[in-house]
């Protein structure tokens, strides 16, 4: 670029540490829940409860913690977010639209033939999706590669990977964990959405993963534990992530509840996948909107 060219516009860039109050985060998380209910209605089936457990974390990442540029989704210095539990992508799409990655009306054909938007996120079709997922267990390895690339290219972007606690069953997660510590990737963060449930029941009954904290520490990671439904707790943990030139990768272990925010889904054994008919959808929406109007947040506590 010649020196007489106008400076590249940075007006659409979103920096880390944007203003987002605890109450604002709680409202945004419930907005994510509401949008999820709306999108599942188009498809006729979906993973409501997998979004509900991490809605507060989604909101904190996209409206405060991540450095993004909605008008330049491929910006080389953007922070990366990878959703290992890809079946919760239905909660990410509305945020990407709201932030301006694509027009809101793109979502109207969710899950229809030829749509960009399916149950799992597709990087080839959706601006703002940094990597596709759907096969549980791959994304932390991809994140290691991105964080390693940042080091090789002397870039200061952060890579954040959210995975489920059931996902910890996959051996590849631990291969990735081992390599991240070996490569001193302090620019890599894994958020474990410990919502206590997998498809067949509770993680502790199907294939126990405890002690999670000890496991990550033993693999060379720093671990922070938070209540994933407490807005202040989520904000503090993400604000406290180490500098990207540090050498120890961070695990944020978020204690959450699958289905949190809609009482009949909260830690239910039956809601990995499903559909709400009109009456039940109205019940769920009423419960969510009541909190949004009252300015309250989902009750915390993991149990």
């Amino acid at each position: 670029m010649s020196s007489t060219s106008p400076p590249e516009t940075t007006s659409s860039r979103l920096d880390r540490g944007r203003v987002l109050t605890a109450q604002g985060l709680a409202w945004r998380a419930d907005w994510v829940r509401l949008k999820t209910v709306e999108l599942v209605e188009i498809a006729g089936s979906g993973h409501y409860s997998s979004v509900f457990s991490c809605a507060e974390i989604f909101a904190a990442l996209y409206y405060r913690a991540l450095r993004l540029d909605p008008k330049d989704p491929q910006w080389a210095d953007r922070d990366r977010f990878l959703l290992g539990k890809g079946h919760a992508a239905i909660g990410v799409y509305p945020m990407l639209a709201d932030l301006g990655f694509f027009p809101d009306d793109w979502l109207a054909d969710y899950a229809r033939v030829g749509s960009r938007f399916g149950d799992h996120p597709d990087m080839r079709k959706i601006p703002g999706i940094d990597f596709s997922s759907g096969s549980i267990g791959h994304n932390l390895s991809v994140g290691v590669g991105m964080a390693l690339a940042a080091r090789k290219q002397c870039r200061d972007f952060r890579t954040v990977v959210m995975i489920g606690d059931g996902e910890l069953n996959e051996g590849q997660v631990w291969e990735a964990a081992m390599s991240a510590a070996a490569f001193d990737l302090g620019n890599l963060t894994v958020i474990v959405d410990e919502n206590q449930m997998c498809l067949d029941g509770s993680v502790s009954a199907v294939m126990p993963v405890e002690p999670i904290v000890d496991k990550w520490r033993a693999f060379g990671w720093a671990v922070t534990e938070i209540d994933g439904h407490d807005p202040s707790s989520v904000i503090e943990a993400l604000d406290a992530l180490p500098a990207t030139d540090s050498s120890v990768p961070t695990c944020v272990l978020a204690h959450t509840r699958k289905g949190a925010g809609v009482s009949f889904m909260d830690l239910s054994l039956h809601w990995h996948l499903g559909y709400l008919g009109e009456v039940d959808r109205a019940d769920a929406e009423a419960e969510i909107t009541a909190r949004m109007e009252a300015g309250t947040s989902v009750p915390g506590g993991s149990r």
Binding site: H270, H272, G274
Partner: peptide, 20 residues
Amino acid sequence: MTETTDPRPGLRDARSWNME
């Protein structure tokens, strides 16, 4: 866990369905 027997806890609409 909250329930083990009722497959439709809290549901009122016949069109709703869950895993069970």
